[in-house]
Design a protein around this nucleic acid. Sequence first.
RNA 1: CGGGGUAUGGCCCAGUCCGGUUAAGGCGCCUGCUUUGGGAGCAGGAGACCGCAAGUUCGAAUCUUGCUACCCCGACCA
Length: 489
Amino acid sequence: MAKQLTPRKENYSQWYNDLVIKADLAENSAVRGSMVVKPHGYAIWEKMQSILDSMFKETGHQNAYFPLFIPKSFFSKEASHVEGFAKECAVVTHYRLKNGENGEIVVDEDAKLEEELIVRPTSETIIWDTYRKWVQSYRDLPILVNQWANVVRWEMRTRLFLRTAEFLWQEGHTAHETEAEAIEEAERMIGVYGEFAEKWLALPVMTGLKSPNERFAGAIETYCIEAMMQDGKALQAGTSHFLGQNFAKAFDVKFVSKENTQEYVWATSWGVSTRLVGALIMAHSDDNGLVLPPKIAPIQVVIVPIFKNQEQLNAISEVAEKIVNDLKAKGISVKFDDRDTQKPGFKFAEWEMKGVPVRLAIGPRDIENGTVEVARRDTLEKESLQLTGLSDKIEHLLDQIQDNIYQKALSFRDEHTYNADTWDEFCKYIENGGFVYAHWDGTAETEQKIKEKTKATIRLIPMGDKFEDGKCILTGNPSKQRVVFAKSY
RNA sequence: CGGGGUAUGGCCCAGUCCGGUUAAGGCGCCUGCUUUGGGAGCAGGAGACCGCAAGUUCGAAUCUUGCUACCCCGACCA
């Protein structure tokens, strides 16, 4: 079994800390908790972006862009929203620097802004202020808009990928004529996230509702997908919120209905972030580095030539180029690593660290025999294959790897998912790490007490038909449904 | 904001208690030769005013004082 991959410094392997991402923190506290996403890490994010973006468009959404800076006054309009974010906002107070007395650069106190600007922690406020101007009639609805952006949350403690001060994400913000339509939208989008996680990231997720404690600031209902990492902890991988009319009322977004009455619009918002890259890493990696599901891997196949001299390389290149063309024709992304500055063994290790799903090695021996050595990243198995029909086999192999990675994560999750009916059982399961289905009396106080005693929180309340009478694990009060508890990131 | 810890070449770090030649080692980097089917070997080389500021001293990485930054644990959180 892979070692525990918690994002703590003592567990950072080279691949995590240096190859995929580097937290090049400046000496200065201003970039505390920010991250530098290096090219390979960013390529993974770009791939996620392009897939999600097309899924959004298939469900009728369009992209737009709203400002980075939000006037402070916008935040006073929705009470619970500001309460949720006020403690972690970066605030712009001045717009100019000047030379100080010792040749230092100092803030020019004369250049103080009349109204401070908030660097967006999320864009609800500025978007709803804008939507007010866009909506007059039911004919203007729905508004189905998504934004790809960076946001800043001045967290007291940061963790690489999982909780950085600045992160990249997408945030969808929709406005609807009816409550039912908005709820349908929120549920549709959590479904999109779930499908994306399972089919593309090979990441099994549970879908459900957040308890009131864990709900998004300003939301009526928060839907979420939760994934299990290799240490048994839960990671919230995406959320979708039904916002009711809270923001419409706060920002006065009204429309004239078919019946000629003034109505407030119904809203949703939904988002996923670069945290998904962290999820991918922590769910699938092993001691040799990343294990990328083929569908999300920026490079799916790498070809490493083994040669002693230029003539050998030339002969190998000829074969390799044909393979490259065949694979590209099938839409498979492939890299021929013909660097002469590194040895083959080094390249094997390096591409494994980067998680490339399939590696082909071609040496003089293969040239003679008309073969290549095929190595798969997920199982580290190697076999020698004939050149004829190779690209079909690789195409098939990529599918197999995708499926195997998913199945492995799924059985891991199943093996670490329990039903608990007594408090002792509950504590034991939580202690060992994993998801625990248990009865809860539905009160915030009980949830809080359980958190204090065990560090476990309610990750989600399952939706649908899994109702069952029982007694709360802590208080013994009646409960109609089991909820999922786990320790989380 | 509470509690604990750390700061020495690009990276990991020894040395600090008990002050004393040129600040040690490993990784990485550069050059040459030999190598190349799982992270090469040997030889040579470059690279550090020891976090910042003051103080004590003939002499400070080491002792004193102040400051700053970062890390870990908690509250907060995608």
